[in-house]
């Protein structure tokens, strides 16, 4: 799988959420806030205001604070998978949040967004999210399908 291409496709998909912060580039996503806002839309009862308030929301965070946010986002998703979806992800290479926060790495960002995608297509509102994906251009749908299949093969 071409992960740089996957990252671009997943950013396009992320753009379909009601995200209020910049979310067009890998650098935009490097503080975890856009991803956290998407998660809040996917599972508002779980990724609630109390959870969101644990994140630092400032315009120019240093890389350590970005990584701190990303760790909370990643852990939140993993806990959501276990506690709500009943899914234990094994054998999937987890995103290196240091590389996302410090270097804006697109490969690692693709892994992070892949986990968000996994939450979206299995949450209680999955019908809404899957139908939104089906409205996207075919090449993006193809990348998303591959990403979901890879993720499901690791459960």
């Amino acid at each position: 799988m071409d992960r740089a291409q996957l990252c671009l496709s997943l950013i396009k998909w992320l753009n379909t959420f009601k995200v209020t912060v910049p979310n067009q580039t890998v650098e935009d996503l490097s503080d975890g806030i856009a991803v956290a806002q998407a998660l809040r839309e996917i599972a508002p009862d779980y990724f609630n205001d109390a959870w969101f308030k644990k994140l630092k929301v400032e315009e120019s965070l240093n890389w350590r604070l970005k990584v701190s946010n990303l760790k909370k986002v990643l852990n939140g998703m993993l806990e959501y998978n276990i506690e709500v979806l009943g899914i234990q992800i094994q054998g999937f290479q987890m995103p290196d949040v240091n590389l996302i926060g410090e270097r804006h790495d697109s490969v690692e960002t693709s892994r992070l967004l892949q986990l968000v995608l996994g939450c979206a297509v299995r949450c209680s509102e999955k019908q809404f999210h899957i139908q939104n994906i089906m409205k996207m251009e075919e090449s993006v749908q193809q990348m998303i399908m591959n990403a979901i299949q890879e993720l499901m093969s690791k459960e």
Binding site: V84, C123, K126, I130, Q131
Partner: peptide, 30 residues
């Protein structure tokens, strides 16, 4: 919702995949 896409085409394959995902029962909480 893509259900009418011709089978055997990439469009049909994508529709099949996402429709099967829609019908899949998932989650500890249902």
């Amino acid at each position: 919702d893509g259900k009418g896409a011709p089978p055997g085409t990439s469009e049909g394959m994508l529709a099949n995949f996402f429709n099967s995902l829609l019908s899949k029962k998932t989650g500890a909480a249902g």
